[in-house]
Computed example of a mutant assay.
Amino acid sequence: MDKINLILILTIVTLFISLFLAFFLLTVQTKHKISNILFAVFLLVTAIDTSHPLFDLGSAGPSNLGMLRTTLALLQVPVFYLYVLSVCYADFKLKPKYLFHLLPFLIANAILLPRFYTVDTASKINFILNRQDMIELQFTHTLIHIQIVAYFVAVFVLLRKVKKLYLENYAGASMTSYNWLFQFTSVLTILYLIVILKNWFKFSDYPYISECIKIVILVFQPFIICWYLYKALNHPGLFRSIDSKLKLTSDLVLEEKNNTQTGVNEKEYNEELLKLQQYMVEKQPFLNPSLTIQDVASDIKVPVRNLSLLINHKLEQHFYDFVNAYRIEYAMDILKDATKSKVTVLEILYEVGFNSKSSFNTAFKKHTGNTPTSYRKNL
């Protein structure tokens, strides 16, 4: 099998899987419709970019449609960024301001108008044959590379903020959602860095290396898409979101310093802390695996803002760790109980409010220095 046939086969496989998943995302009944639509658009734009070998096979030469297909690559990472936003925030809505993300795509096509889109076929052929010297194509490729780096940096900054918001306001499945998004973004980042490397070789003295890298990308793309599909089908709970109106504790502290008149004094904090501790012991809300700081604030009649400052700033603990400490203490009581020696660790973790073995083991070891199994054996 020669290289051309291999590329065509890999392209067809990738296109089939991408289009199948896009169709699934657009037709499946779900409350996360915007997220599904955005990821479907990302898949479709990526599929059009990947279809390059098939497009060339059916094309007699350079065309406006072919160039437009190439510049559509400028829409991939902006759409992915919006997808991550929609997954992170429950109240995400598409707004006119997001049209700003179309700007690089529009600029690139505007620059190509004089010497490609508006000229005859012969001029188009000459443009492509001399592509290494064409400032328009050099600019477009540079823009794509800058865009990839800028958007993925923005995505990781967003995920870092979201992780802090999860830790400060949630004690349930939200961290699993963050971990999945971080893993998926990391894999895509590596893939796009490989794409940058491929494009660099394409305009160097070693274009054949670019073709080899293209095959590597085509091999890995179907696996990444299938991995996403597997996660989406088997763990729909991963795609939960938080409220974008939530503020980081560091921002709340800054507001407190700038507005001392409405700040909460130490006496009020101590009263609220006592109320919180009594509530945690008597009502055991930590047994709820989806507990949020809003739930606790509502039950003990303390403003969310005050409770967030109390736990995350005054106690110097994330809400996530604060709740898990109570869960671990409760789990330790069960492990010490001789009458419950037959209860498995898996049963215990679900009973005390955890929803995964890995998060339970991590929290237990952080709190006690031992794994649950070792702790039970050493009693």
Rank of each mutant, 00 (worst) to 15 (best):
D56P: 00
I111W: 06
I128M: 15
R131P: 00
I135W: 09
L72W: 01
T121M: 14
L94N: 08
G58H: 10
L72K: 00
L72P: 03
S123N: 13
S59Y: 06
H101K: 00
L85N: 07
R131M: 14
S59A: 14
V119H: 08
F127R: 06
L94W: 14
S86A: 15
N126M: 11
S123F: 03
L65R: 12
P78C: 01
G61I: 03
K97C: 00
A90W: 01
L112M: 14
L113Q: 05
L112W: 03
V84H: 04
P62C: 00
S59L: 08
L57N: 12
F116E: 06
L72A: 02
V77H: 03
M67T: 10
P78L: 00
T121H: 13
V84M: 12
H101L: 12
F80C: 07
P96K: 11
L113T: 07
K97I: 09
L103P: 04
V87R: 02
F80R: 04
M67L: 15
R69L: 03
G66H: 10
L106A: 04
L74T: 08
P104F: 00
M134C: 08
P96H: 01
R131D: 10
N126I: 07
Q138C: 07
L82Y: 01
H101S: 09
Y117M: 01
Y89L: 08
R69M: 04
L82M: 12
